[in-house]
Amino acid sequence: MKNQNNKTILDVQNLHANTQSTEILKGINLTVKPGEIHAIMGLNGSGKSTFAKVLAGHPDYTATQGNIQFEQQDLLALSPEERAQAGIFLAFQYPIEIPGVANSQFLRLAYNTIQSKRGNDELDPLEFDDFVREKMKLLEMNPDFLDRSVNEGFSGGEKKRNEILQMALLEPTLGILDETDSGLDIDALKIVAKGVNHLSNSQNAMILITHYQRLLDHIVPDYVHVMEAGRIVKTGGKELALELEKHGYDWLHDDRHNNVGVSA
C-alpha cells in the first residue's frame, strides 16, 4: 500500500518526553507517509505506549525537546480534541468505561463534533443509527452494544472492537492502535484485523503498537520499528518482526549494527 508521493502525514524529529520529571522518550525520529502501515514493537517499558499517548496529547506527558509535524501543523501546539479533529485517532490499550452514557449517544456526539469541525454535515439520531449499524457489521458487533453504556461490562475483545468502530466512524488520517491485539482471542483478532485492513487506504496511515508478531500476520506492516529505552533502535521491513519472534529482543543486541531494514 506504499504511496510513492512525497507528502508526509507525520514527521517526528528528536522527540523527548517526560512524565513526572522522568524522561521516557529520548529522541524519537519517525516519518509516516500516506498509505503506510508502521508497526512499533518493543519490550514493556520501552516507551511504545508513551509515544502513542504523546501523539494523542495525554496531559500526563510533556514533550521537552524535538517537534512533531502532522500534516504541516505543529501537533504539540494542539489540544487532544484539536488533534482528534485534525485527524489523529488513538485506539486505547485500556478503553475507558463510562457508566451512564449510552454508547450510541457517545458515538454520535464524537462523530458529529468531528464532522462539524471538518465542515461536514451532522447526522440526526435516526440517520446516525443507520450509519453506525452499517459500520458495526464490518466488525461483526451486535447492535445491542449501542444501547449499553460506553464499554461498561464489555469483554476485552468487545472493548477493542468498539475502539475500531470509533476509528471507522471518525475516519482519521493517522490511526494509532495501542496494543489493540492484547487480550484478544484469535477470532476477535482476525475480526479486528479485517476492520483495520478495510479502513486502511492510500490517503491515511496506521501505527500499530504491539508486543507480538501475531497481529502482523493479519495486518501486514510496511515498516517495523523496534523501541528500546525511549528510542527507535532498529527499523526494518515486515521480516524484522519474524526475526524478533524467532530470536527474542536480546537478538537485537547481537545484531544491532547489522541494519537489515529500510529507513522509514
Binding site: 494523542a56 496529547g57 495525554h58 496531559p59 489540544s79 487532544p80 480534541e81 488533534r83 482528534a84 479533529q85 485517532f89 488513538l90 486505547f92 478503553p95 475507558i96 463510562i98 457517545f106 456526539l109 464524537a110 463534533t113 468531528i114 469541525k117 470509533q166 471518525l170
Partner: peptide, 16 residues
C-alpha cells in the same frame, strides 16, 4: 482525568 482524556481524544471539548 483518564475519562476526560478519552472523550477529548474523540474530539469532544474539555467542557463537553
Amino acid at each position: 482525568k483518564e475519562e476526560i482524556f478519552y472523550l477529548k481524544s474523540r474530539g469532544l471539548s474539555e467542557l463537553t
